[in-house]
Design a binder for these strands. Sequence first.
DNA 1: CGTCCTATTGAATAACTTCAAACCCGGTGG
DNA 2: CCACCGGGTTTGAAGTTATTCAATAGGACG
Lengths: 236, 236
Amino acid sequence: MLTQTLNTQAINTQVRGKIAPAHPPAHPVSDQFGAITGHAGLVATEFSYRKDEEIYGEDEPAEYVYQVVSGAVRSYKLLSDGRRQIGAFHLPGDVFGLESGPTHRLAAEAIIDTHVRLVKRASLEKAAGTDVLVARKLWAMTAGELRHAEDHMLLLGRKTAMERVATFLLEMDRRLAVAGMMALPMCRRDIGDYLGLTLETVSRALSQLHAQGILGFSGARQIVLRNRARLHHLDA
Amino acid sequence: MLTQTLNTQAINTQVRGKIAPAHPPAHPVSDQFGAITGHAGLVATEFSYRKDEEIYGEDEPAEYVYQVVSGAVRSYKLLSDGRRQIGAFHLPGDVFGLESGPTHRLAAEAIIDTHVRLVKRASLEKAAGTDVLVARKLWAMTAGELRHAEDHMLLLGRKTAMERVATFLLEMDRRLAVAGMMALPMCRRDIGDYLGLTLETVSRALSQLHAQGILGFSGARQIVLRNRARLHHLDA
DNA sequence: CGTCCTATTGAATAACTTCAAACCCGGTGG
DNA sequence: CCACCGGGTTTGAAGTTATTCAATAGGACG
């Protein structure tokens, strides 16, 4: 597939190794899969998805649990008329698709060409049934997702457009900044659908932050934060 | 305390029994505490909170896990300037305050006079460490909260005011309707802070639904749904 | 070097909020 | 028993924020 070779980020990561991107995120990834697979001797498979390819659909049976090796994934829900709410972005190291019940409650798509590792949900269930530490880890991962969702409800329900964009920039800075610069894998529409805004409103907020010198661009998706303190202040 | 006897809902439930309200909600409550305490022989204490009393604060150590016996509880986050997002309402039978980590990430307050049962978090942790079924149940409860949060993100990020109110009414109808009527324990401001709207917008939406004959009032907080199909249609 | 997709910017519009006043009802006290 | 509070709710009018519709600009890639 030529499309894969078009994405330099995916190539680089794949060439370098199994999981860790070239520059490990500041965020504590600590190999969440390893904590499980190491313990229970589970078999992890690798797989790739092309840009915009669906990984699983909403309400599909949850057969696998995934970890992003390289690339990026969006998890989302749709309304009948096409309005979309992205609940989370999954970046290298992140686990996604983990369910306690039988089905995926959000759909997942690759934002860019993406490599994942995956294990069968059933084998995790089995491991959790015999190993209390595995069970504890699964709970902790779901609880981590819940915390993010709770923070995001506050953003969606009560923050202004500028506050939402500021929060987003700080989150992405924390999760994927390399040498003070972040390479956003997602487009403005994705950001808008994550923040409950239109793509135009996101663009206007970013332009305003740029005009105030709070951030710098080198291409629309390459952003440098020049003043995190002011961004925190805008975050409310 | 006279205040307690003023709330008929609380009285009725307390008189009838420990947990189940007179008319069990369609929603599967199935005594979530019992599934744990029965298994591990944990000691549950009872406690009461008066209207608007704080049960725990945001970021407080999570010492207990609670179950509503009667009354109602709101879980919420605040921004520094006082804007509030209610993440969930907890009604009789619901478990709340369950954390995988060390602290409560939302604050909780009694909406009306409320009775709870509670168990020490540490004893649950201990039980989960020896009994895989308990561990599995705790995970499932957190996963249930996550599902609700994911649905609510869609509402907060992408639904219109009318759609939000319609969703709210259907949720409350499902969870606390008795003989086709629901007695809302919370005020319009609470509803607004749950739906990411102002109390005035909530009131206007309810008035409009009333004018269209979709619901009936007998007092501002006693609502009868007269046409669930049309409400579902408005929900998008 | 052109093409296509994405992003930016502008202007008009719509939805919701804000501010304000009136109303309603449950509870209190005369 | 009734009048009166007072918090909560409804309704109205003006204002604000974000959306929508439209056009231009920018970049990556062939």
